[in-house]
Structures are given as structure tokens and as C-alpha cells.
Simulated assay, not measured.
Amino acid sequence: MKAGLLGMLNSPPCATSVPLRHVRARVTCSSSSGHISFIKDVAATQPPENLQHLLKMLQTRGETLVSPGSRHGLIPLAIPLSENMSGSMTALLRWPTAPPGMEMPVVEVRKHGVWLLANNVDQYIHRILVEEDADESHGSNGELFHASSEAGKKLYTRGDFAESKISNLDGYLLKKVGLFPDLLERKVMRHFEEGDQVSALVTGEFYTKKDLFPGFGRPFVFNAEVLLKVGRTSEAKDSARVALKSPWWTLGCTYQDVASIAQWEDEQIEYIKEKVSEEGRQEDLKKGKALPQVALDEAAFLLDLASIDGTWGDYLDRIAECYKEAGLGEIANFILYRD
């Protein structure tokens, strides 16, 4: 590892003993220029068009903006946006090898990875505006609509929820705004509460359609839990094993929780440890796999291993080195960057 890259890396605090909100620098101004320039210059990708409006909205609803480079103890693919009073962080996810045109998802950062909040910034803005409009108990004063500016006007017209005559807010969001993991999971549980097991199973399977939440293993985890709930243990096992083919930091829970349903112990962990060993690397190269692909696979495996205990800092140097070997120097720099 070159000294120039090492100089950008600070040792992260122990994630299990220090709450994340105690170790991050905070941005007190309302300007979004820092996040936009970070995404362009450090994350080396195009910032979402309406990011500045989302940041203003998050701040308006009481969240504290967080420096995008304040990533100690976090999964290194996250770009922090804001933090609420309970310490939950909203961030953008920078997929290392995203296909052209794929937008950055909005996620909640957790110890073992991320939880998908929305597939893109516009979808998240749209949802926030609808929820604000539907929140009669607080008598919406329009602050969030004002903060959303022109983006909000394009995405949602105030009063549309009431005019739609759709009684259920979740139903409106799913029909008019987009699909969200938490809403689909809530819909399944509502079917169970109503005694409609068939609809619960159908919705659980629909959740796993590959084009809905590309790259995320969470839908397969939840579907496994649904199948387990109705006693279909073998199918639950299969769904859990499919989930573990996705990045483990996208499971929405711990690796151990999913491995238990998959009826695996440490086999997968041992397999990955073998793959990232020097012997495993040489074996892949002997089989004819190109070095850049071997390096990309190793980086993905290392992220999986780091997610097990949330020990991201232990793997940063090696993950960055893999991306350098794969010809993704900008991603390597992004992985290592800390304020």
C-alpha cells in the first residue's frame, strides 16, 4: 500500500463500545456543496440531481447533517448525509461497480451493513412529502414542502393523498411512489394478521423479484422468514441460501441469523477465508480467471467478512488494495478516505 493512501486512513474506534454519533464530525451549515463535491471528487461518480433538496429536507425535519468524509466505523461504501436524534444515520450507497446509469440508493447505516430506504434520492423525497402531507396529527405546516423546492413540486402535489381516496398510507406509497422494503414487509405481516396466508406468501415471493432491489439480499432473507413462519422449512432454507449469495452487508440482519435458516454453520465463512488466502488467489489465477476479476471477487469477500462483526476498519487497507489491482484506483481512494 502506498504511503499516500495510508495517510488518508485513520484507525476507527471500536464500533461495539463507542456509539457512532459520538465519533463523527458534524456539518452545522445548511450548504450541500460539501456533499456534492465529495461525491464528484472522492466517490468519483455523479451526484444525484436533487441531493441538495433532500439534505435541506433532512435538516428541516430535525436531523443533523454529517460530513460525507466522517466515516469512521462505517461500512466504507456509505456516504453519510444526516443523523437523527436516536443516532440513526441516513447515507448514500456507492456501489463499487455499479452499471452505467444506476442511481445511488438511500440507505440507513447499521453495524453489520445497510438497510435500503429508497432506490434513489427522488423516490425518498417523494415518500417524505407524502408522509408529511398525510400526517394530520401534527398539522403539516409546509416546511418540508418548502425545503424540497422545485424538486418537490415536480414529484408531488400537496393534497394528492387525500384526493386519491386511498385510505391506507402504505397502499398509496406502494401504488403512487414506489416499492420500499419496509412497506412490503409490513404488507406481508398485515396479511398474516388478517389470516390471509396465501397473500402473505405471494407478496413475500414478489418482494424477491430481481429487478426490484438489485444487489440486495434482504428480500430473500425476509421471504425465508415468511416461509419458515408457515412451516415450509426446506423452501426457507433455499431462500436463505440465495440471500447469502448477495453481499452479506445487504441482509438487513446478522449473517448468523440467515445462516441459521440456511442450516449452515461456519462453512461459508471458512470457504470465503480460503478464497481470500494467497492459496485461494493463486488457484483462481491458475484456473484462468483474470487478475482484475480475482481482485474484485476478493474485495467483495472481504466486505462480507467485515460485515459479520461490523469490523470494517480491520479490512480497509486490503479492500482498497484489491480495487487498485482491479484498476479501480478512484474506488480505492474512496474506500480509504476519512476526514
Rank of each mutant, 00 (worst) to 15 (best):
255 Y>W: 14
49 E>G: 06
135 D>K: 07
47 P>K: 08
126 H>A: 08
144 L>P: 03
28 T>K: 07
227 L>A: 03
204 G>F: 01
263 Q>F: 11
261 I>M: 15
146 H>I: 15
153 K>F: 07
9 L>N: 02
331 I>M: 13
225 E>I: 09
96 P>E: 02
118 A>Y: 01
201 L>D: 00
99 P>W: 00
89 M>R: 01
320 A>L: 10
109 V>T: 04
278 E>R: 12
257 D>P: 03
144 L>V: 14
336 L>K: 11
91 A>H: 00
41 D>M: 10
202 V>G: 01
68 P>L: 04
286 K>V: 10
3 A>E: 14
139 G>Q: 11
171 G>E: 11
272 I>K: 07
59 Q>E: 11
244 L>I: 09
11 S>E: 13
122 D>F: 05
305 L>S: 05
189 M>N: 15
157 T>M: 11
164 S>E: 04
327 G>F: 07
19 P>Y: 01
81 L>D: 01
203 T>H: 00
213 F>M: 07
177 V>L: 02
264 W>P: 00
168 N>R: 08
289 K>H: 09
278 E>H: 06
217 G>T: 04
130 V>A: 07
43 A>H: 03
227 L>V: 02
227 L>R: 03
325 E>K: 15
300 A>R: 06
6 L>F: 09
124 Y>R: 06
288 G>A: 09
61 R>G: 02
87 G>L: 07
60 T>P: 02
8 M>F: 06
318 R>S: 10
137 S>F: 14
43 A>I: 10
194 E>M: 12
32 S>R: 02
46 Q>V: 15
119 N>W: 01
213 F>K: 02
334 F>P: 02
274 E>A: 14
53 H>G: 03
335 I>K: 00
30 S>G: 13
35 H>Y: 02
210 K>I: 10
69 G>P: 00
311 T>A: 13
334 F>H: 07
86 S>Y: 05
149 S>A: 15
155 L>V: 08
67 S>I: 07
288 G>K: 06
4 G>Y: 11
206 F>K: 03
173 L>G: 00
336 L>Y: 06
134 A>T: 06
226 V>R: 00
80 P>G: 02
307 S>K: 01
337 Y>L: 11
237 K>L: 11
277 S>R: 09
206 F>P: 01
289 K>P: 00
243 A>E: 01
245 K>S: 14
201 L>P: 02
156 Y>T: 04
159 G>R: 08
118 A>M: 05
308 I>M: 09
5 L>G: 02
321 E>L: 13
333 N>V: 12
67 S>T: 13
224 A>Y: 04
167 S>D: 13
322 C>F: 02
211 D>I: 04
3 A>S: 13
316 L>S: 05
54 L>E: 00
301 F>A: 13
265 E>G: 09
75 I>Y: 05
203 T>Y: 00
307 S>E: 06
301 F>V: 02
78 A>K: 00
127 R>T: 04
162 A>V: 12
